[in-house]
Design a protein around this nucleic acid. Structure first.
Lengths: 242, 242
DNA sequence: CGGGGTTTTGACATGGGTCAAGGAACGTGG
DNA sequence: CCACGTTCCTTGACCCATGTCAAAACCCCG
């Protein structure tokens, strides 16, 4: 892989044309990189940001803490995700960011983002688009948490991750890397780890999905999608000019 | 009120400086206005947009349909909200928009938005910020739906609306206009209308809130906030340069 | 090969859903 | 300004999906 931002650029290119000059500008945004161990909080809710995090390699997630130690995971972030790009305009961040696996993170200074978006308005819209896509994913999860059963929630997650990982070429056949514990799965889906366990069992026995040694294997994608009422429109997988 | 976009500009001015030239540019974006009756779907999920909707007056909401007629309301929109500004960069919209009351809606063509954001980059960032604020509200609702009880969900809604309406001067003392049926409240909170009814009763009997003739009256804000675990950070109510 | 973190399972509790029906409120036409 | 139909609110009885608590079993990883 030639550049630090290649995976991110690849995601943009699914949705729109990205010129070489724009790709170079993105690569130029990143002034340093840092490695983190697994299970490390990188940004804490309430902080003021002057740079945004691009996840180069590894898995991460964003979450909110509640009073008594409960947490809600808001979104899983995959290699190539610009994790908190919205911090560029929000400034004060409303949630924390943590690694799930050992991860390499690159940093883009907000001053540089401002310069680049002024000089290259189309690239600016592409970055804006990425934050709007995040919001669309949030909306799908509002719907999932508000309306779907335990089975539907887990099915939704697997369908979504499969699509998002496929963009980066991170799905092999029907399998992809999946480093969440069942407790963390519960924090994503708003369920207890005990009920996650039972629901996974029923999905397994129905021949839809299994999780084995940190990998998901989807055995019946059609039925899994039906179980989730999965409609990928919200992922904006079509190419169109912005 | 002098201009169609005054309420929207007022919301921007809570978060950052907006020059007269920028305010005039926003007013110039709006080329036409249209009135809609209550309970009318204005934009349908899956449509491709070439303009975005600014809610001038009245209440609206965004929602997703599920198979069997169930719906999830994603966010309530208040007078002065730029309801689907994210459509400017998403193009194809993942949800529907409907009016809750009779409403006046103004339209901003995406071509004009593109021109304005190129010519006035700071204004562009303010618009971007508005979409990021929407996403922050979504994240709060993911947490609310994933982790909070029926009581907490309703309390959260009342606390949030109070803050958001106060910006536009739409809260009088402890009361504000609230035109939702209990069935619609259920679609916001992921509950059945029957359970919404019971939960409202318990909030009423605990002396926290009452709903009467289309208005909410908050009787004990401190306890209501505690019930919701309400922390307004996500609403970005501080003024800071973008 | 020992031990902390996971996963799995069982027994039981409960918040919220379902179904059903009566009552209140409200808009519309006469 | 009344009558009537429709929608909305309220309540009761019962049910079920998911939560709680607790204990084994498993499984890496050092």
């Amino acid at each position: 892989m030639a550049g630090i931002t290649d995976r991110f650029i690849a995601k943009l290119r699914v949705r729109d044309e990205v010129s070489d000059a724009e790709a170079a500008a993105v690569e130029g945004l990143v002034n340093r990189t840092r490695d983190y161990p697994a299970d490390t909080t990188v940004v804490r809710a309430g902080e003021e940001l002057t740079e945004s995090l691009l996840l180069v390699d590894g898995f991460a997630y964003r979450y909110k803490d509640l009073r008594d130690g409960r947490r809600q995971i808001l979104e899983l972030n995959l290699p190539g995700d610009f994790v908190d790009l919205h911090g560029f305009v929000l400034k004060r961040i409303d949630h924390s960011v943590a690694t799930l696996t050992p991860a390499t993170i690159a940093f883009a200074a907000h001053d540089d983002l401002r310069r680049v978006t002024v000089e290259m308005p189309h690239l600016g819209r592409l970055l804006w688009f990425q934050t709007a896509l995040d919001a669309a994913i949030h909306r799908e999860w509002i719907t999932t948490l508000g309306q779907k059963s335990a089975t539907g929630r887990l099915a939704q997650l697997f369908c979504e991750l499969r699509e998002r990982l496929a963009i980066g070429g991170l799905v092999e056949g029907d399998r992809f890397h999946f480093p969440l514990t069942q407790a963390e799965l519960g924090e994503v889906t708003g369920l207890t780890s005990v009920h996650v366990n039972r629901t996974l069992k029923s999905l397994r026995e129905a021949g839809l999905v299994t999780i084995d040694r940190g990998a998901v294997a989807i055995h019946d994608l059609v039925r899994l999608k039906r179980e989730a009422e999965f409609d990928p429109t919200y992922l904006s997988l079509e190419k169109r000019p912005r």
